[in-house]
């Protein structure tokens, strides 16, 4: 099976009319250790590009978008039971997020194949890694505009 990728670093792999969806190895590496994830329940439907799930590391929260329209037929039980480590260990295999029953596989045509995605990732400005995950809520919220703070402060030692 071949995977196709979005510019927001979701992957999708089609098997008949069932699409398995997750986040790319690149995305998982950029996020760092996952500390929280929220997956939709079976029965929920999404259009391509809708907010579908949330994945958070210590540094940031990222929205995960539906890479293709469809109805959730299964969410990864391991992730649902808070075993988030699988997302870091095997993002493009056992760390999948959901399986979607899809209607229109032509939506896949707008996504990148492996070679195109590899080129795309290479071109991302590495310094922008907080921003590389589209939908990231993190950069300002995470660290702010002052960068740490006054030199030596500490509680109440006066």
């Amino acid at each position: 099976m071949t995977k196709r990728y979005t510019k927001d670093h979701e992957w999708v792999e089609l098997n008949g009319d069932i699409a398995t969806v997750g986040i790319s190895t690149y995305a998982a590496e950029q996020l760092g250790d996952v500390v929280y994830a929220e997956l939709p329940d079976a029965g929920k439907s999404f259009k391509q590009g809708d907010d579908m799930a949330v994945v958070e590391s210590a540094k940031t929260a990222s929205d995960v978008y539906a890479p293709i329209s469809g109805e959730v037929v299964e969410a990864n039980a391991e992730i649902k039971s808070e075993q988030w480590q699988i997302i870091n260990d095997a993002p493009q295999a056992g760390g999948w997020f959901v399986k979607l029953k899809i209607a229109d596989k032509s939506e896949l045509d707008s996504l990148m194949d492996q070679a195109a995605y590899d080129d795309y990732v290479k071109g991302l400005y590495v310094s922008g890694y907080f921003l590389a995950l589209a939908g990231s809520r993190g950069p300002e919220g995470g660290m702010g505009d002052s960068g740490g703070s006054a030199e030596a402060r500490g509680g109440g030692t006066v």
Binding site: A58, K59, G142, M143, G144, S146, G148, S149, A150, G155
Partner: peptide, 19 residues
């Protein structure tokens, strides 16, 4: 890095200016 600097100061309950 600055990432852990922020999580350390948050655990320590210290204020981050601008936030």
């Amino acid at each position: 890095g600055l990432g852990a600097r922020d999580s350390l100061r948050l655990e320590a309950g210290l204020c981050l200016y601008g936030h």
